[in-house]
Amino acid sequence: MTFHVPTVDIAPYVADGAAADREEVARQIDEACRAVGFIQVIGHGIPDTVIDGLTDALDRFFALDLDTKKGYRTPPQVNRGYSPPKSESLSLSLGVESATRMNDFFEAFNVGASSAAYPHVTDLPQPDYAENVWPAVEGFEPQVQGYFAEAARVARTMTRIFADALGLDDDFFPSRTDHSLDVMRMNNYALPPGTEVSLDGDLIGMSEHTDFGIVTVLWADQVRGLQVLGSDGSWNDVHPADGALLINLGDITAHLTNERWMSTLHRVKPPVIDGTIERRRSVAFFHDGNVDTVITTLPSCVDEHHPALFEPVTIAEHIAAKLRGSRAGIRNDAAGREAQRVLDSGRY
């Protein structure tokens, strides 16, 4: 069977369209989440000017020299600021040892929703809701914040569609995301000239992983690199269509649906052409949910033929275990199901 990422126009939800049109969108999303776990969405409503501002901001930041960028690093437990090349290994978030630890070839800059974003909630735990680190790059903060707000809107639109597709009450996701742990990661897969990074045989852009939370909204260049694991165990190239965003499900949604909807494994292979790395950029907005929410499988997704696959877990516990793997190099041994899929793919 040919691997295919479906394209869905979500405009009926963005523009409050007719009930029948929204029902059709929810049906298409349910079908895509069952079959692939990745979706191309159009009709998302993010203006081109906002995306242009985002790409301008990340281009100017990543053009800085490496020492300057390293000045914006934070400790591994604080999911903010700059991550240099080869400082992470996403496969460890699944408990899978890569051939060379902490060898993922990408640099990134993270921002997220701080406690100030949720004034209606007191005593939010730190560093989950840490303040952002903003580089001294003119216009960077407003340009990035502008896109962050739009991506957050799209993520919440998707959870509204998810609720309809799963037959849930309208307040199901809002009650679990009113102080959501939202993080946006800007990734760069090519470095300025003169940066010393060896193109060794073990190099990988971003190693095999599943996303951690509810849903991810991904903007990316139309440059090859992103690969998604198909149901047959094959790795398949994926890049966004013109004007589209890529949507994929995270582990929390897989837990909720008892893997009726899959948190799909994906990776990024270095875009190497003629011995040099072709520039590739992506921006992933992770909508992860409230840290104090306990995730339990939906009763509608459990029956005698589909027993519950997961124990209840708080979002905080789940995210912390994944981050200890990817950012601190501490293998996550609680992700056995996802790890087995990586091993079955033949990568290790």
Rank of each mutant, 00 (worst) to 15 (best):
F3N: 02
F3K: 04
V8F: 01
A11Y: 09
D16C: 05
D21K: 10
D21P: 01
E23H: 05
V25G: 01
A26Q: 10
I29C: 00
A32C: 02
V41Y: 05
I42M: 01
G53C: 02
D59F: 05
D59V: 09
F61E: 03
F62S: 05
A63C: 08
L66I: 12
T68A: 14
K69T: 08
Y72H: 11
T74L: 13
T74I: 06
P75Q: 03
G81S: 09
P84A: 05
P85L: 08
P85T: 14
S93T: 12
M102R: 12
N110T: 13
V111M: 08
S115N: 12
H120T: 02
T122R: 15
P125A: 11
P125M: 11
Y129S: 06
A130I: 09
N132K: 04
E138P: 10
E138C: 09
A151C: 07
A152F: 11
R153W: 06
M158L: 15
L166M: 15
G167H: 03
F173W: 11
S175P: 09
D178C: 12
D178W: 10
S180M: 05
A190H: 08
E196P: 09
V197S: 00
D200S: 14
S207H: 02
T210R: 07
G213W: 00
V215R: 01
T216P: 08
D221N: 13
R224C: 09
Q227P: 06
L229R: 03
W235R: 03
D237P: 06
D237I: 01
L245D: 02
I247T: 06
L249T: 06
I252W: 06
N258R: 04
M262I: 15
T264W: 00
G275R: 03
R281S: 15
A284F: 07
A284I: 10
F286S: 08
H287V: 05
D288G: 12
V291C: 13
D292F: 07
D292S: 12
T293Y: 09
T296M: 10
C301T: 11
V302G: 05
P307C: 14
A308T: 13
L323P: 02
G325Y: 04
G325V: 02
R327F: 15
Q340Y: 00
R341Q: 13
R341P: 01
V342G: 04
D344C: 07
S345Y: 00
G346I: 10
